[in-house]
């Protein structure tokens, strides 16, 4: 499947944290855009990445894994150096103040309820061309107490479910489970060397 952006994603390597969770669906999406996907389990896997995805899964498992593998500092250095990062669901939680401390938000885990309250919905995202995004929410968190530098891109009712802060993009839902590659394209279009990334819209 060809990318619509024509930016030559083929030269880009996207790391996907693969300690546990939905990393394969992200890898498939990244490859469908013509970029390369690399599973990240140890710090050495972070070498030479153009972008990083922290997938959904269980945040408790990922927290333990990051600690066990000594990944916290290398991940922080990578993101602070400006590498574009996309966190989805548990990946958003991992970026927050209480976990990696990169994204200036708190998150409320399982905020919409247990699995029986999981849902699909169309969500409007600021700056994303092409209409609302079909979003799959699974035991999803939402953002609480966003800091001043955090841009809210989308909400479900009053609750922020998509945010951006510089090179960090975080969503409560699972773009990799819907056939909509726009957030992955946005990640690949973000310029890692420039923190003030051009908005897609």
């Amino acid at each position: 499947m060809a990318s619509t952006s024509g930016e030559g994603f083929g030269s880009k390597v996207v790391g996907i944290l693969a300690l546990q969770g939905g990393f394969e669906a992200h890898a498939k999406m990244v490859r469908s855009l013509g970029a390369r996907a690399r599973e990240v389990r140890v710090p050495a896997d972070l070498e030479g990445l153009h972008a990083l995805i922290i997938p959904g899964g269980e945040s408790t498992v990922m927290t333990l894994g990051i600690e066990r593998e000594g990944l916290a500092e290398p991940l922080r250095s990578l993101v602070r150096a400006g590498t574009p990062v996309l966190g989805t669901c548990a990946g958003m939680i991992m970026l927050d103040r209480e976990h990696l401390g990169l994204l200036d938000v708190s998150t409320r885990r399982n905020a919409f309820g247990r699995q029986i309250r999981s849902f699909e919905a169309d969500v409007d995202l600021a700056g994303l061309r092409g209409g609302p995004m079909h979003a799959v929410f699974i035991r999803a968190p939402w953002v609480a107490e966003p800091g001043a530098g955090v841009e809210i891109l989308g909400r479900v009712e009053d609750h922020p479910v998509a945010v951006r802060q510089g090179n960090m993009l975080a969503v409560s839902f699972h773009p990799e489970l819907a056939a909509d590659p726009r957030l992955h394209e946005l990640l690949l279009q973000m310029n890692g060397s420039d923190e003030r990334v051009t908005r897609a819209g």
């Binding site: 546990q20 969770g21 990393f23 669901c89 309250r117 169309d122 489970l177």
Partner: peptide, 21 residues
Amino acid sequence: TARDEATFTVKAGLAEMLKGG
């Protein structure tokens, strides 16, 4: 927000999030 609950996508999607676990 119009929500579709209990779709097969959200049912199978939870298993997707358990992968590697």
